[in-house]
Simulated scan of single mutants.
Amino acid sequence: MLRALIIDDEPLARSNIAHLLADDPGIAIVGQCGSAEEALAALPAARPDLVFLDVEMPECDGFELLELIGAAPPFAIVFVTAHHQFALRAFEVGALDYLLKPFDDRRFGRVLERVKERMRAPGETRRFIIKNGNALQVVKFADIDWVEASDYYTTLHANGRSHMLRRSLADLDTELAPHGFHRIHRSAIVNLERIRALEIREDGEYEVVLRTGQRLRMSRRYRKTIMELLCKD
């Protein structure tokens, strides 16, 4: 049973989503909020698995609400918006899907089925959607070698290419950790499956050597944890 929370400042929009969700026996509606303030108060007790989040709300919009929550939220997100241009940003902040208002029953049903499928197999479907010129680049978690802090952004290094993402390293650290990633330095996260070796430099410090040949400095504070993780069966 998936616990769903609806956050939208329009009562009719909340009612429509609730009505459509009520037809699904695998969904339990745990709350409806008309503002970001209400949502922040309701989230701890509601403990939703899935949140339908309106983009445009007065005082605090959907993206700003996620910034207030901080890090990677412990629930899946479907953004609800009347404007197509918000779709890219929705995927950039980790949304599983988005609904374009006004939507009909068929469109809602398709989105809900896609979301449930992705939530059933998160390890296979986790990915970032990144704008690259006029195209949208899909970068799967499994394809990422390492992640680098770049001022207020991060750079994903995957399949020999680099992709700039408008997310903080701390944010990505929380999101990627359950999928086999770990920080090795205050400005770097690595995919543990991509590590080929740990080498000791002449000064006694360790370097992480990736399968690509890339060498990354490892801070002493992470050395023991990384070694323990690599030695696990």
Rank of each mutant, 00 (worst) to 15 (best):
H83S: 07
M57I: 07
Q137W: 03
L112Q: 02
A95N: 01
A87H: 10
A90W: 03
F141K: 05
E113Q: 13
Y98V: 08
E64Q: 15
L88W: 06
R110V: 15
E148W: 04
A39P: 00
V147P: 02
F141L: 12
L96K: 10
K140V: 11
A90G: 15
N132F: 08
V115H: 01
E117F: 06
P44S: 11
V55P: 00
D104E: 11
R110F: 14
T81P: 02
V115W: 01
F108R: 03
D105P: 01
A39Q: 04
D54G: 08
A149K: 09
V51D: 00
E67F: 05
E64C: 10
N132W: 06
A42Y: 11
V111I: 12
D145M: 06
A71G: 09
L100C: 12
V138Q: 04
C60L: 14
H84R: 15
P48E: 00
K116W: 02
D104L: 12
L100Q: 13
E56N: 15
L100M: 14
L53H: 00
E124W: 05
V111K: 01
P73A: 12
A71E: 12
A45E: 15
A39W: 00
A95C: 05
E113R: 10
D104S: 09
A45T: 13
V147W: 05
L68C: 13
F141N: 05
T125N: 08
F63P: 02
D145E: 15
L88Q: 10
G70Q: 12
T125Q: 03
D49G: 05
D54Q: 09
R120E: 12
V51G: 04
R47I: 11
F91G: 06
L65G: 03
F103V: 00
F91Q: 00
E56P: 06
P48H: 04
E92A: 15
V93K: 01
F141M: 09
K101A: 10
L53G: 05
Q85S: 08
K140H: 15
D49F: 06
K101F: 12
H84G: 10
D54A: 12
K140R: 15
P102S: 04
P122F: 08
D104W: 10
A87K: 11
F52T: 03
A121T: 14
A41S: 09
A149F: 09
L53I: 07
V93Q: 03
F52A: 00
I77K: 04
P58D: 11
R127E: 13
Q85R: 10
E59M: 12
R127C: 14
M57V: 07
F63Y: 13
P102L: 03
I129C: 14
L100V: 15
R89N: 08
A135H: 13
Q85L: 06
A76T: 12
K101C: 08
V93G: 04
G62Q: 04
F52C: 02
L88E: 08
G123E: 15
G70N: 12
F63G: 05
I130D: 02
E56V: 14
R127W: 09
P44E: 12
A149D: 01
V138C: 05
A142L: 06
R120T: 11
R120D: 11
F75M: 09
R106L: 14
